[in-house]
């Protein structure tokens, strides 16, 4: 084209343009005949534009999902360890992990709000039907119980044995453990009960993943704190084992709605995360688990994988919201 002379702007040229436009319109209509025809799947979407709004949550929310999982499961581990009269040093680390996690979570959530100064509006109502409302109350309750447990534990550790502190510790630990399980799993329900297809179609899988991931992370933190005992090894094995199964399940099951879990930024990240949490951590434990370095490596791999997977799931939600065709096909099937 660069060598061709510029066509003279005449009435003939205008006729030419008009003719070309009319030809191309006919062509477009003819070629679009087949994809635009009503089929069993129904009509195509409106110019391929998204039919849903993508999640607006920024980096704070996936990080919160990650920390909430660690905090919740750490409280659960502390309670069980206490019940089996395990090493007080281990219980102490778990309780502090729960409290520190609980302290960071509200900061992240408030930072993500469009109007951070209105964060207290979260506690204006209590709605069982809103996972977000329930979550705000769960986090508030968890922080209180974790704080109570840590305070009582530290008092008892300093030799102030008193039935009051013992019973308050018991109350704090049991409640924190119970609410901690909710804290680690409600986030999965939160995204599972939305209009975003890739989330809602995986609503049963997400809680399994989030809880297992939280468990593996709380065990990994104990290992990194130096507790290379059989209990943390067993927890690490169990968590990586379940994550491996989830990874295999996701790879084997091919549904159009799961495309964001296999393709693009979210798919790649989720695959790396799944490998780190599952097969790689498991491999390290099996072949290198007898030496501390192997267990540290497995713990670090699991933590990184767990963090990445939370981001991958949020990104998958964004990709899912952009695809109107999958949404419509899904609704036509059911």
């Amino acid at each position: 084209m660069k060598t061709a002379a510029k066509p003279k702007m005449t009435e003939e040229r205008l006729e030419e343009i008009r003719k070309a436009a009319s030809e191309s319109t006919k062509e477009t209509l003819a070629t679009q005949e087949s994809p635009r025809k009503p089929s069993a799947q129904g009509e195509q979407s409106y110019y391929g534009l998204p039919a849903l709004k993508a999640p607006v949550w920024t980096w704070e929310v996936p990080l919160y999902f990650f920390l909430g999982g660690i905090a919740g499961l750490s409280a659960c581990v502390a309670f069980v360890a206490q019940s089996f009269r395990s090493d007080p040093a281990l219980i102490r680390v778990s309780l502090w992990a729960a409290l520190l996690g609980a302290a960071m979570c509200p900061v992240l959530l408030i930072a993500d709000l469009g109007r951070p100064t209105r964060f207290l509006n979260m506690l204006r109502v209590f709605k069982l039907r809103s996972a977000m409302s329930l979550g705000a109350w769960i986090l508030a309750a968890f922080s209180g119980f974790a704080f109570l447990a840590v305070v009582c534990f530290e008092i008892l550790l300093r030799g102030f044995t008193n039935p009051l502190w013992t019973s308050l510790l018991w109350l704090g630990e049991t409640s924190a453990a119970a609410v901690g399980l909710l804290l680690a799993s409600y986030t999965a329900v939160l995204i599972g009960a939305t209009a975003i297809p890739v989330w809602s179609e995986n609503r049963k899988l997400l809680p399994v993943h989030f809880l297992t991931s939280g468990l593996g992370c709380s065990a990994a933190i104990l290992e990194l704190a130096g507790f290379l005992i059989p209990a943390t090894q067993v927890l690490g094995f169990a968590a990586s084992g379940i994550e491996t199964l989830i990874e295999i399940f996701l790879e084997v099951r091919k549904r159009p709605v799961d495309a964001p879990l296999h393709q693009g930024k979210s798919g790649t990240t989720l695959r790396i995360a799944g490998l780190l949490e599952g097969p790689i951590a498991l491999f390290l434990r099996v072949f290198w688990g007898s030496v501390p370095a192997g267990r540290y490596a497995a713990a670090v791999c699991f933590l990184i994988g767990a963090l990445l997977s939370r981001y991958a799931w949020i990104w998958a939600g964004r990709a899912s919201a952009r695809d109107p065709n999958v949404l419509f096909q899904l609704q036509r099937q059911t």
Binding site: L113, R118, M122, A195
Partner: peptide, 15 residues
């Protein structure tokens, strides 16, 4: 009242 949590955005089936 709205504090911009963004949960309604992903909960609307009509976008």
């Amino acid at each position: 009242i709205c504090n911009g949590c963004g949960y309604c955005v992903v909960s609307c089936p009509f976008g």
